[in-house]
């Protein structure tokens, strides 16, 4: 089983952090395109993350990209960058219902086909609790309990 003891959160617009995060060898590294990035830097951060994902140093580390919600103007573009860049996991924020998961699933499939990535290669994570039966490809469900600092990942299937 893949160990996920440490996940290094990296703001997607921080070029210096993206260039050095891999030296700490975290179990996973999460590039954030959502809350960590201001609206005016969404475009440049997306490209930075896309290029960083393709950097050989990140081949050894599990990469997660937190995209913007798909109902924002940024979400789909972020998803293109994440899947085409080769992210291992896409993390969807603010998942409120099963439709959001099916939508994500469909888009990931479409992009994987478009860029000739093996279908099913990109795993997906959701925050939110009520959607556990949403997708065949959901590998984790993120549990967020009363204390927001205490995040846990549940097992793979």
């Amino acid at each position: 089983m893949k160990l996920r003891r440490s996940m290094l959160f990296v703001p997607g617009d921080n070029a210096a952090a993206l260039s050095t995060a891999f030296i700490y060898k975290p179990d996973s590294v999460m590039f954030d395109l959502e809350d960590a990035v201001s609206t005016r830097e969404k475009d440049s951060a997306r490209l930075l993350v896309f290029q960083a994902l393709r950097h050989p140093a990140y081949k050894e580390i599990e990469t997660v990209v937190r995209v913007n919600a798909l109902n924002t103007e940024f979400g789909l573009k972020d998803l293109e960058a994440a899947v085409r860049g080769g992210a291992d996991i896409v993390r969807l924020p603010k998942t409120e219902n099963a439709e959001a998961i099916h939508e994500l699933e469909a888009h990931v499939l479409r992009i994987e086909k478009a860029c000739e990535r093996p279908v099913g290669d990109t795993k997906q994570v959701f925050s939110g609790f009520s959607c556990s039966s949403g997708s065949l490809r959901s590998v984790h469900l993120q549990l967020q309990n009363q204390n927001p600092k205490s995040l846990r990942m549940l097992g793979e299937r």
């Binding site: 260039s19 475009d43 490209l47 930075l48 896309f50 290029q51 950097h55 860029c115």
Partner: peptide, 29 residues
């Protein structure tokens, strides 16, 4: 900066400069 950062910055500058909204991802590599 690393090469990947230089690439991303040049791409971002060109796309902003040209006002491109829809990206052709095949060309960004």
């Amino acid at each position: 900066a690393l090469d990947c950062v230089i690439k991303a910055r040049v791409e971002a500058a060109v796309l902003r400069g040209s006002g491109t909204e829809e990206l052709d991802w095949e060309k960004l590599s």
